[in-house]
């Protein structure tokens, strides 16, 4: 009904957080955009860059899910925009769906992102071991 609104809200919040962290990192002199670690290098992804993965996952998913809701006639281009918001019974059902499916969607995306961050941290640490880059190049 409107479950995509929960990940959309998280996407908006993380986008703002990303901007703030990005500007702080730039002030501290940490690069955020030109940090694609090259093979054998010891560079690391900044946190704002990692947060961008989450915002991209959330915005991307939200866009396609919003399209699905338009397809099913649950989102309309006129007020109140959500067909479920037109009567109290449907509104209650919509809120129930948002608090269950919507929250679960946001949590699932965040967990996948956390796994991605953990994986990239492991890779970065492995690449930072002394002599590792040299050995990789030799291989």
């Amino acid at each position: 009904m409107a479950c995509f609104l929960v990940p959309a809200a998280e996407a908006a919040a993380t986008s703002v957080a990303k901007k703030v962290i990005d500007s702080k990192e730039k002030k501290n002199g940490k690069a955020s955009e030109s940090n694609t670690p090259e093979e054998g290098s010891v560079s690391r992804f900044s946190f704002s860059r990692k947060l961008k993965w989450l915002t991209n996952l959330l915005w991307g998913g939200t866009a396609l899910l919003a399209f699905e809701h338009i397809w099913h006639g649950e989102v309309v281009p006129f007020f109140p925009f959500l067909t479920a918001a037109s009567n109290p019974e449907d509104t209650a059902e919509m809120l129930r769906e948002m608090s269950t499916t919507g929250v679960a969607m946001a949590v699932a995306v965040t967990l996948v992102w956390a796994a991605m961050v953990a994986f990239s941290t492991v890779i970065e640490k492995r690449n930072m071991k002394p002599g590792k880059a040299e050995n990789d190049r030799k291989e």
Binding site: N56, T101, V109
Partner: peptide, 28 residues
């Protein structure tokens, strides 16, 4: 990778984001 001149990672994020969300929907 690691070049990604055409920003295909953006496409990956869009589809994976939607796939995770639709997977949760499917579980429910």
């Amino acid at each position: 990778a690691p070049g990604d001149e055409y920003k295909i990672r953006t496409l990956c994020f869009i589809y994976w984001g939607a796939s995770i969300m639709w997977f949760v929907d499917a579980v429910f």
